[in-house]
Simulated assay, not measured.
Amino acid sequence: MTDTAYELAQVNIARLKSPLESPQLKDFVDGLDPVNADADAADGFVWRLQSEGGDATDIAVFGDSWLIVNMSVWRDTDALTAFMYQGRHRELLARRREWFERVEEAMVTLWWVPAGHRPTVAEAESRLLHLRANGPTPYAFTLRTSFPAGGAQPLIGEVPEGLGCSV
C-alpha cells in the first residue's frame, strides 16, 4: 500500500550524441510530445518538469548543454514502472543508444517527496550526485533497489534487463 503523504520523484538525464535539431535526433524529438501526453494521462502520474515549450529539453542540468533532463512525480514506483515499460515510452527507451551516449555513471534516480512538493533541478542534481557517491539509499535510489516512503530497508525490484535502471 502506498503512503499518500509521499509521492515519488524521478529524474533521468541523458547526454546527446547530436544536437536536438539534427536529423539524427528527429525520431526522438518527434516522439517527445506523444510520450509526454501518454505520461500526462497515465495512471499515477502527478507532475512533470517542463518549460514554455511543453517539455524540458531546454532546461539546463549540471551546466552542460549536451545533457537533457526529464523529471516527474508519480504516485509510486508501480505507477512509474507501468508507464516506463509499455507503449511509446518503451519504444523510445529501446532506441536510446541511437540518440544518447552510453555513460558509466548513474543518470537516473528516484526519491520520495512530500505530497504536493515539486522538485527543482538543483534538488534532482543533488539526489543524483548522492546516488553516484553512495549507491542506493533512502535519499536517492533506483527502481532496482528502491525504498518505501519513510523506510530504511531496500526493496529489490524486478526491472527488465538492458533498460538502464540497474544502478
Rank of each mutant, 00 (worst) to 15 (best):
L25T: 15
K26W: 00
D27S: 15
F28H: 00
F28E: 00
D30H: 10
G31V: 04
G31L: 11
G31M: 02
L32V: 14
V35E: 05
N36T: 04
A37Q: 07
D40Y: 13
D40V: 14
A41K: 10
A42K: 13
G44C: 12
G44F: 10
V46C: 05
W47M: 05
R48H: 11
E52P: 12
D55R: 04
D55L: 08
I59A: 06
A60R: 01
G63Q: 06
D64V: 02
D64K: 01
D64Y: 06
I68G: 02
N70T: 10
M71V: 04
S72H: 04
D76R: 09
F83Q: 04
G87P: 03
R88K: 07
R88Y: 02
H89F: 02
R90P: 05
R90H: 14
R90E: 07
L93M: 12
R97M: 04
R97A: 14
E101L: 03
V103I: 08
V103Q: 06
E105I: 12
E105C: 07
E105H: 15
M107R: 15
V108G: 09
V108S: 00
T109N: 11
W112M: 03
P114Y: 06
P114F: 12
H117I: 11
H117F: 13
R118A: 11
R118K: 13
P119Y: 13
V121D: 05
A122P: 06
A122E: 14
A122L: 12
E123R: 02
A124Y: 05
A124D: 14
S126W: 10
L129E: 14
H130G: 06
L131G: 06
R132K: 08
N134W: 07
P136H: 05
P136M: 03
T137K: 03
P138E: 00
Y139M: 14
F141E: 11
T142L: 05
L143H: 15
L143W: 10
